[in-house]
Amino acid sequence: MPGGRLTQQERQRIAAGLADRLPYAEIARRLDRPTSTISREVARNGGPGGYRPQDAHQATVQRARRGTPSPPSAAGAPGGAMEEEIIELAVRSGLPRMTARVHVDLLLSEDGRRTAAELTRRLEVSPASVSVAVNFLVQQGYVRRERDPQRRRDVYVVDDDAWYHSIVISSRQTLESAQAATAAAQTYGLDSPVGQRLAKVGAFLEQVSLDLRESADRCRDLLA
């Protein structure tokens, strides 16, 4: 699978795929690229309805020349509205807003990488807020931490396999809840109403955990 930045020709093919209403996964397959690369590329350059391959390529070239990350999208900009929508979806699913903002900023970055200083500057928040957010994301498997030995700093990374690892961690936590419920059921007695209720909960959560892990393993190649 090719690596590195998208070429101008690839961006033209992305635009053609969007015009044909192809899903991101199909566009990615045709380019032999990860689906997340396509989704990030489109999201940060106008969205499905406003993507312009020449503008997107020129913006990437300019950022590379400056050697700095792109500025955060304004809420009124084409990509900004989509970014805010993703953040709201994450918040409604239970993610703290600051954590959601950090996660989305990483997702929409060119290479899925940010330092804590970059996140602090881009989101205009305190280093402590960023630290709390990235620690949670790392613990849940959404983000991994790399060490830059030359500059002695941490780099936070969202790669394609992060989604698999987050599902595995969620499955493991669900299984732990199942085991706790089963143990409590035995303590209360399986012949008691409480014990029977907890035993059912334990059996349900255990099966959900196993199914979730099996599904993640079966579908993992979609992230390759």
Rank of each mutant, 00 (worst) to 15 (best):
Glu124Pro: 03
Gly189Arg: 07
Ala43Asn: 09
Ala56Cys: 02
Arg114Tyr: 04
Glu124Cys: 10
Val132Gly: 01
Leu89Trp: 12
Gly195Phe: 03
Gln62Lys: 13
Met98Gly: 05
Pro71Leu: 08
Tyr142Leu: 06
Ile169Lys: 05
Arg153Asn: 02
Gly141Phe: 01
Arg153Gln: 14
Arg92Asn: 09
Gln150Arg: 15
Asp20Pro: 09
Gly141Met: 00
Gly3Pro: 00
Arg65Tyr: 14
Thr35Cys: 08
Gly80Trp: 05
Gly202Thr: 03
Gly195Pro: 01
Thr120Ser: 07
Leu175Ala: 11
Phe136Lys: 15
Ser70Trp: 11
Ala224Thr: 12
Gln173Arg: 14
Ala56Pro: 04
His165Trp: 13
Arg213Cys: 06
Ser70Gly: 14
Asp161Phe: 11
Ala19His: 13
Ala28Tyr: 04
Ile167Ala: 10
Thr115Phe: 02
Arg40Cys: 06
Asp154Tyr: 11
Gln54Thr: 15
Ala162Val: 01
Arg44Cys: 07
Ala64Glu: 12
Gly49Asn: 13
Ser171Asn: 05
Leu212Thr: 14
Val132Cys: 07
Tyr188Trp: 13
Cys219Gln: 15
Glu146Gln: 09
Val125Glu: 05
Gly94Pro: 04
Gly4Ile: 01
Asp20Glu: 15
Thr174Met: 11
Ala180Gln: 12
Ala216Ser: 00
Pro71Tyr: 06
Tyr24Glu: 08
Leu18Ala: 00
Arg153Ile: 09
Arg63Phe: 09
Leu108Pro: 07
Gln8Pro: 10
Pro34Met: 01
Val143Ser: 00
Ile14Met: 08
Leu22Phe: 06
Arg13Tyr: 13
Val208Pro: 05
Arg114Asn: 05
Ala75Lys: 13
Ala100Thr: 05
Leu6Trp: 00
Gly112His: 01
Arg92Tyr: 00
Arg21His: 14
Ala116Phe: 02
Ala199Tyr: 12
Val157Ser: 02
Ser131Tyr: 10
Pro34Lys: 00
Tyr51Gly: 02
Tyr24Phe: 12
Gln196Ile: 08
Gly141Arg: 01
Thr60Ile: 11
Leu190Thr: 06
Thr60Val: 11
Val132Met: 09
Pro69Phe: 07
Glu88Met: 07
Arg114Ser: 06
Met98Leu: 11
Val208Ile: 09
Ser129Gly: 08
Ala90Pro: 00
Asp221Ser: 12
Arg5Lys: 12
Val130Thr: 04
Asp55Ser: 14
Gly80Thr: 02
Pro127Gln: 05
Thr35Met: 11
Ala224Gly: 14
